[in-house]
Computed example of a mutant assay.
Amino acid sequence: MFSRIVLAASAALMLTGGVALAQDVIQTRKAGFEDYKKAMGEIKDAVGKGDLAAVGPVADRVDAFAAKIPGLFPPGSDKGKTAAKEVIWANFPDFTAKAQDLQASAKALKVAAASGDKAATGKAFGAMADSCKACHQRYRSE
């Protein structure tokens, strides 16, 4: 009887710990996406002002975050206060591919900005925004 109580208590602690870990990762990814949103605004402002030199470092920030996105969605992190749709985990390879698309578009934006061509940079920024939108349409609840 004692071993059943210990087993039940251990299971409850592990479950509670799992919920806490899920909430931690949800908070981490929310902070990351808030910074990403801020980065998009910074890039838009820089391109609008023609300050293409400012675009590269921010595109690097987006690139680095995009590389982390799949790891911010471990199984079980669909519970709690999150806009993540359950379909993420059912289609994780596609979700990961969309994060890789964002990463590639951030790299392309950096290259375009480094060229000094404002039109090409604007086009690359639009492509990066489109990669963001493609993921949100499928995987984020509004």
Rank of each mutant, 00 (worst) to 15 (best):
I26V: 09
T28M: 12
T28D: 07
R29Q: 08
K30P: 02
A31V: 05
G32C: 10
F33S: 11
F33C: 12
Y36C: 13
K37V: 11
K37L: 12
K38M: 14
K38T: 14
K38E: 14
I43A: 05
I43D: 07
K44P: 01
D45W: 00
D45A: 14
V47A: 02
G48A: 02
G50N: 07
G50V: 04
G50L: 06
D51P: 11
L52G: 10
A53Q: 14
A53D: 15
A53C: 08
A54P: 10
P57G: 06
P57R: 04
P57W: 05
P57I: 05
A59N: 03
D60Y: 03
D60S: 11
R61I: 01
V62R: 08
V62Y: 09
F65I: 03
A66D: 13
K68P: 05
K68T: 12
G71N: 06
F73P: 02
F73N: 08
P75Q: 11
P75F: 05
D78Y: 00
K79V: 08
K79I: 06
K81M: 11
A83Y: 04
A84N: 09
A84V: 10
A84G: 07
K85L: 14
E86C: 00
V87W: 00
I88F: 09
I88R: 10
W89D: 04
W89F: 03
